[in-house]
């Protein structure tokens, strides 16, 4: 179901667990994810593999693209309509572009704080025209470039006020072209309209509902639902378009197909798993990135557990006529 306009409201049936992808040594320390027609591209960072891992929906390992010869501290991944792969490098202040086979096309970007220069670029997002927003983290701003690196726009500056940032990280653009920014060290999410004007700020520091501890990423689905990966609280929080807190995801992982295959091939692992506290295996550990697709599948990069947890929203879209008008006070009596 692809929606072009946001429904008036939703009947939320639930958000059942859909599936798990990946495992240690395949999707070790996943930091971002992107989708091709058939392939799933998972950007991983760290000692066990700094590269893009390619999987399919059967969780089969189809190899890697890129690697440390192209980027050192990869942070953000974008996949365009031709499945070209864009990777930001926080160590070298640049954007690396490869084709779907991993062949290097172009690298652009230079270090600095002037307009169009970068200081530890992290998350990436396309705007509606296909230009690229880059979270220019240590310059405390979001910049927009054409795909081949021409500077277009800059939003924000260092600070704690509206429209200001302290080390912004994850960004995304909704179907109407609004920009959402996980304002990492300010423990909040901010929204900007298509022209870059501040719209709202969501959240504050803490661990209560609606509060964040170092949020790393934000994404918005076609219902206007906002998902925030609240990394230090090991959860993802969901808010509706009116910024009302809906629910949190703490992890419900099942075994990924490759994980299951692994365990079945290892008699000792099978035994140890049966001796251990099984419940722990489900939980999220430092979710670093969150994405949704047009089918309302929610992808949580369960960084500390080297896997991707996927949920799928079950909801009925409502028109204004289907639901009673908003009420000012609660009611005990219902029929």
């Amino acid at each position: 179901m692809t929606t072009t306009s946001i429904p008036y409201d939703l009947l939320r049936s639930g958000f059942p667990y859909y599936m798990t992808l990946g495992q240690r040594r395949v999707t070790t320390a996943p930091v971002d994810i992107g989708f091709g027609k058939e392939n799933i591209y998972v950007l991983t960072k760290g000692g066990l593999g700094t590269q893009i891992r390619v999987l399919n929906w059967e969780d089969e390992n189809l190899g890697v693209r890129g690697g440390t010869d192209l980027f050192q501290w990869p942070a953000g991944l974008l996949v365009d309509e031709e499945e070209n792969l864009y990777v930001s490098d926080e160590a070298k202040d640049c954007l690396v572009i490869m084709n779907k086979d991993g062949e290097h096309i172009q690298t652009w970007g230079e270090s600095g704080s002037d307009e169009g220069q970068l200081n530890r670029p992290s998350s990436l997002a396309f705007d509606l025209e296909g230009n690229i927003f880059i979270s220019d983290t240590m310059n405390h701003r979001i910049q927009k470039f054409t795909r081949d690196g021409k500077f277009l726009q800059s939003i924000g500056e260092m600070g704690t006020g509206d429209g200001q940032f302290d080390m912004p990280w994850g960004i995304s653009v909704d179907q109407l072209g609004n920009l959402y920014v996980a304002d990492w060290r300010n423990d909040r999410v901010q929204k900007f309209d298509e022209s870059g004007n501040f719209v709202f700020s969501l959240g504050s520091s803490g661990s209560e509902k609606g509060q964040f501890k170092r949020p790393t990423a934000v994404t918005v689905d076609n219902h206007g639902d906002i998902y925030v990966s609240d990394a230090e609280n090991d959860r993802v929080q969901l808010f509706n378009k009116d910024l009302k807190y809906i629910q949190s995801f703490h992890g419900n992982a099942t075994l990924s197909p490759s994980g299951q295959q692994y365990i079945l091939a290892n008699a000792v692992t099978l035994r140890l798993r049966s001796m251990a506290d099984f419940e722990k295996t489900q939980r999220l550990d430092a979710p670093m990135m969150v994405k949704v697709d047009d089918e309302f599948r929610l992808f949580i990069l369960d960084y500390g557990n080297h896997r991707i947890q996927i949920y799928k929203k079950d909801a009925v879209e409502l028109s204004k006529e289907q639901i009673a008008p908003e009420m000012r006070n609660p009611i005990l009596f219902t029929t």
Partner: peptide, 13 residues
């Protein structure tokens, strides 16, 4: 000590 979950497939516990 309590048996920890093994390293594979999802890392240490």
């Amino acid at each position: 000590f309590e048996q920890p979950l093994p390293l594979y497939p999802y890392g240490n516990y």
